[in-house]
Write a protein that binds this DNA or RNA. Structure first.
Lengths: 195, 195
DNA sequence: CGTTTCCAATGAACTGGATCAGGAAATTAG
DNA sequence: CTAATTTCCTGATCCAGTTCATTGGAAACG
């Protein structure tokens, strides 16, 4: 149960709950260990779970017609990850969600989440806050992608998520930022040479 | 009150409500008439309202350092619009939200929305569904922007929102799709000449 | 331990889409 | 109605970022 502590803190930061409620919430989650390079979601299969990262790192990506990856989301400790279009509408996924390291996650099933939301106004509020913030975050990303060039996108990301830059492979970062690995490599070396 | 009918239908499609609840919901909204080219949100001012479009069309856009616009959202009848990062966190807006036609909207104030959500589990659910779907929609847009080229993005939009393509000026569409008006013009003429 | 597979760095040639510049249509205002 | 302004079209040129190819180093693996 020590792994659930982080999740308990996570939710208590966002809504007020009694100990009983916290336990009810946690009881809906199942602990899973995932090895590096393992997939927790694959295209064609419905994403039945929302995943809270206790330890490790994941990336969600799509593969386009020309065979290239595009990283849609990266998650490390205390973040959530899934293919939300698949999860929300319970339709087949279009994404891969892959562990970038050996990891531990807490999974909640779609039906259990639905039940929690229906049963307690509190939990409905929690998931509403989560959705609102994800929405706002994604909108900021859309804006960045539309308004900034490759170098600016990289710099912005470096400032905002220095930990993630250190931790994930360059190809994952490049495809998240919407550029090739080659170009990202050039940008990085441009910068470090100057200083 | 005839203008509220559309909004009443909108919400009843998403959650089950008694007539009294519908009225309580509607009573939080104020009707506003907006003339073409008028702004309902401007950078530097906090977006106090979420806006439901009863009639007309709007676009939300940011202006980058080089002075170019980037359309973040377009809304016609039965859609919502605001600067969600400003609204959600009650921080100064970065966007303009401008009427593209003479329009009619129903506005809800941030505090009234908060009150509705707190008061009734039902309304919390409604706003949660709204946020979830917006999030999923934005994620699909991120994917499209990362995986498709200009022509494919245009074609996809044309198929999905033919009505909007007809209705909004080309510069608004081009800047939504992440290309210049010149390039969009070329794409359009490429296609129509063939057929 | 060597071998294989993965990942970052860099060079050279290329291209999708931007920029700049000039008009032609179409709206809008008066 | 005409004038002014806004929107759209088209051609010529340019560049940020891609593509393709090669190399070296570092994990992963038997």
């Amino acid at each position: 149960m020590t792994e659930s502590l982080a999740l308990a803190e996570h939710i208590k930061k966002r809504i007020n709950l009694t100990d009983a409620e916290v336990n009810e919430f946690l009881s809906c989650f199942k602990l899973m260990k995932v090895r590096k390079r393992q997939f927790i979601i694959q295209p064609g299969f419905i994403a039945h779970h929302k995943n809270y990262v206790v330890k490790g790192a994941f990336r969600a990506y799509v593969v386009d017609d020309t065979g290239q990856d595009h990283t849609i989301q990266v998650s490390i400790e205390d973040w959530w990850i899934s293919d939300y279009n698949s999860y929300l509408y319970q339709k087949p996924a279009t994404m891969f969600v892959e562990a970038l390291e050996d990891s531990i996650i807490l999974q909640i099933h779609y039906n259990d989440e639905a039940w929690l939301k229906q049963e307690h106004h509190n939990f409905e509020t929690f998931f509403r806050i989560m959705a609102e913030r994800s929405m706002a975050h994604m909108q900021r990303r859309i804006i960045t992608n539309l308004t900034k060039n490759a170098e600016e996108r990289y710099k912005e990301f470096e400032v905002q998520y220095p930990e993630i830059v250190q931790r994930i492979p360059q190809y994952a970062l490049a495809s998240y930022l919407g550029m090739t690995t080659e170009y990202l490599s050039r940008l990085r070396n441009r910068r470090t040479k100057k200083s």
